[in-house]
Design a protein around this nucleic acid. Structure first.
Lengths: 339, 339
DNA sequence: TTGAAAGCGCTAACAT
DNA sequence: ATGTTAGCGCTTTCAA
């Protein structure tokens, strides 16, 4: 495993009997622009191919002051939604000759700053971030140097461009239809209200109830964080309070749903879902939900569209000096399993 | 969004009234080695801090002929197991000042070569790959330049270092116990036999049967690929063949399990799992399995350990000129839900 | 104890 | 139509 010295453009030039400039032009496909003789062109190309020449991107980046790399910061790679977005973005970047640098913030604002700093040191040309910050101050400063795109989450009233799911709309549609069954109560388990998706999901929930003509009871709305344990504990408390299962429940994330299901399983209450005695719906989707005897309706975000939109937007920001920061709220789909 | 010129070490040197050399020494924490005067040291540090100096890693890499980046190639980021490994590896790398470049091969050998080529062009110092290749020729060549570590999958008889789960062992344990229930038949749905994990899982299955004293019937063993659709189709065919559900079934991956469940759900057969009339077990684990009324036993690979072991090994390979290539087969856990 | 200068591999003015 | 040269930001000999 000896680190054989890589072949450079100077080597190619020497072997082909031309200058570095000529070799460079040819290898960058700009031979015609500089009217390099066809014969020279081919000679250089042949030598390069034979020697498996591949340019040193660090040298290129150094002189171009551009790295052709962009950063993606998400809370957690094992979250299916974020993983889907990351996968699609990686593919789009690769096909465009860009390198996507993926890093996780663990939903911790401090960790988030650290990983962003790390990416900056790597000279990324742009950043896409699903932020856990409560203020966009940090990114307002950063965006003076490179374009920053908010993903999935809106930091406060930040004016930075933004791509996310129109959670309020789809949640309202989901809730309205279920509430019209009708139901006399509809509980809501959510995560941190500081995160914008939480607010939109809750707003959608309330709108849905209203449209179904159901009077909201403040008792129904409960918040903690998005850990499965929180779902478990909220379900436990609710069960104890009521002395029975709720008629209908919406969990604002897949992780919360998991906690709720774990509680129901442990207390042998899953039967209530199978018999539709208890209605359960959730934000976020999972293929496995199709395969269960549990009739759980869900909201499936369009990860592919989110990734594609983010990619187009960041490319635009990367190319032009000044783009009016635009934001996109994308439609999501409802997976009905109870009807 | 004007691209403000970043501050360089030359700027720092000028501002601090010293030479680039001195500034460099100080900023790399080697002030004492070169006995830079304490006062000078502090002046440089102060200037650097005030100006938020951060070194240009491309320049560093160019001159050091080292990028402090390593590549990770996996089939699919949305596969929970690979996502877990990627997350842990990213964290370990970040903490060690390395950048992890993650790319997906979509389980396609051609795509895999393309993404590896892309990473090589980015001058990665080392590569960790869960390969879909059937020959390690490509990597044998590559490893003459940079260390290559096989992850999760063993390419043929490749001598390249390797980290994976000891699938045969854990599968045998799982199958033995279930088969001893006893069962008179035990079906097996697997993916491509060209992939080493498939072979190990099958070997474990057969060993488990043997240890339980069950005579294997070749009819029980079925293979396709790891797509959920394949699980669905194998289940469909088996159901039709038998005219009833099998007594026991093992799926060699979570994706296959999903297909099987989808079939059972569509044909209203899930009840058979709840009543344990049909025994179902799978390789790979998912938290949701804990929350279902379905009694599915599973094998949980230790992603964290796999990531840590891989990281230690690649660092070793990176540091020393010549390490005896070592391989690790790590233990996995069984999640019992039927007992 | 510090500085000057060369060079990593590449591109782009400017020559020729 | 092709070559010469400077310089991107950094580290590292070698001098002073």
């Amino acid at each position: 495993m000896e680190k054989r010295k890589r072949i450079t453009i100077a080597d190619i030039a020497k072997l082909a009997g031309v200058s570095k400039t000529t070799a460079s032009m040819v290898l960058n496909g700009r031979a015609s622009t500089f009217r390099i003789k066809e014969e020279t062109r081919e000679r250089v190309m042949a030598v390069a191919r034979e020697n498996h020449y591949s340019p040193n991107l660090h040298a290129k980046s150094l002189q171009a002051n551009r790295s052709d790399a962009i950063g993606l910061v998400i809370p957690d790679l094992t979250n299916f939604g974020f993983a889907s977005i990351a996968r699609e973005l990686e593919k789009l970047c690769r096909q465009a000759g860009l390198q996507l640098l993926i890093a996780c913030s663990e939903d911790d604002p401090d960790v988030e700053r650290q990983v962003v700093d790390g990416l900056i040191r790597r000279q990324i040309d742009g950043l896409i971030v699903a932020s856990s910050q409560t203020s966009d101050e940090f990114y307002q400063t950063l965006t003076k140097q490179i374009p920053v795109l908010q993903l999935d989450r809106h930091i406060g009233q930040s004016a930075l461009p933004l791509v996310l799911t129109d959670a309020a709309k789809v949640t309202a549609d989901l809730i309205e239809r279920i509430a019209a069954s009708p139901v006399s109560e509809f509980y809501y388990f959510g995560g941190q209200l500081e995160l914008s998706p939480s607010r939109h999901r809750l707003a959608g929930f309330e709108l849905g109830l209203k449209r179904a003509g159901v009077d909201e009871n403040p008792e129904w709305i409960r918040h903690r964080d998005y850990q499965p344990e929180s779902g478990y504990e909220m379900m436990q408390q609710l069960h104890q309070e009521l002395g029975r299962l709720p008629e209908a429940l919406f969990t604002a994330s897949y992780t919360l749903l998991e906690g709720v299901l774990r509680y129901l399983k442990e207390h042998n209450c899953l039967e209530a879902l199978e018999s539709k005695e208890m209605r359960l719906a959730t934000f976020d989707n999972h293929d496995l939900l199709d395969c269960l005897p549990l009739n759980i309706d869900s909201v499936a975000q369009d990860s592919e569209k989110i990734a594609q939109t983010s990619f187009q937007l960041i490319r635009l920001l990367l190319s032009s000096q000044r783009v009016t920061p635009t934001s996109f709220a994308l439609d999501a789909n409802i997976c009905w399993r109870s009807q």
